[in-house]
Design a protein around this nucleic acid. Sequence first.
DNA 1: TTCCTTGCAAACGATTTGCATTGGA
DNA 2: TCCAATGCAAATCGTTTGCAAGGAA
Lengths: 144, 144
Amino acid sequence: MKEREIDELVRGRLSERNIRYTAGRKALIKAVQLAGGPQSAAEIHKQVRRSVPISSLYRSLAILEAAGVLSLHQGKVARFELAEWLTGHHHHVLCIECGTVDDIELDEASEELLKRLAAEAGGQAGYEESGHRLEIEGLCRRCR
Amino acid sequence: MKEREIDELVRGRLSERNIRYTAGRKALIKAVQLAGGPQSAAEIHKQVRRSVPISSLYRSLAILEAAGVLSLHQGKVARFELAEWLTGHHHHVLCIECGTVDDIELDEASEELLKRLAAEAGGQAGYEESGHRLEIEGLCRRCR
DNA sequence: TTCCTTGCAAACGATTTGCATTGGA
DNA sequence: TCCAATGCAAATCGTTTGCAAGGAA
């Protein structure tokens, strides 16, 4: 999708919600779009420092996320787990409501499938695959 | 793997590196192990507040991670991307060397497979699956 | 004795908030 | 005009560090 289209879609979504699509926000969206992967506030700020002060940057990120224009690829608190040589290879399920993260193990066939799929897709992207992880999002039992 | 075994493995790994396996660290490992999923420093601290002050907690987390006993499931800076209704559904490839993150799209068949696999596995874990993401790690072209 | 680890307090960096001001619909 | 957005500075939160004291090898 090209810049112009995204721009129009974002403008529409925001105006429905009485949120203004100002020059600063436009710059911010453009920076994220051009990056080609998830960006931190600092990285975005690097691209828009002249036009957007850091406080507005953070405020706009929060507003745009709440409006569904941006999505949070990973949160800001570090999370630790036992290394895989202690736990065995596994994946995660995350509750979108309460934030719980549970470990899950796939059955052997699925794991084999996934491994092959990851190696294949990684290869096509020009990467020499060395690992993969699957994160499944949803509502946990308690939040349902 | 049971608590006792993990304990021995950790003790071994640490002693090789001249790192002491103190009561506080043991408590910390136990807390992570019992949690069943990646834990934040705050969550771990909740379990060991009587015995481990927050500064020691953070220090031990860093030491244990460097020793390969803990692994960081997600870092501490928030990262944003455009929502999927703007970009289309996609996944990520990460270079373990330079940290680049690239978006990739799977072919339809693989995506279908993955979607089914995620819904299935999420369901078994008691989650009502609403999404999934695959992160593939490896070496990018430039780093190879 | 040696040196890793601890515990407290101070320092830090990232993020948030209060408030007066600006600017778009 | 009205209310969202801005910009600065102060506050806050999670995390890190300095340093003196404690404890294991």
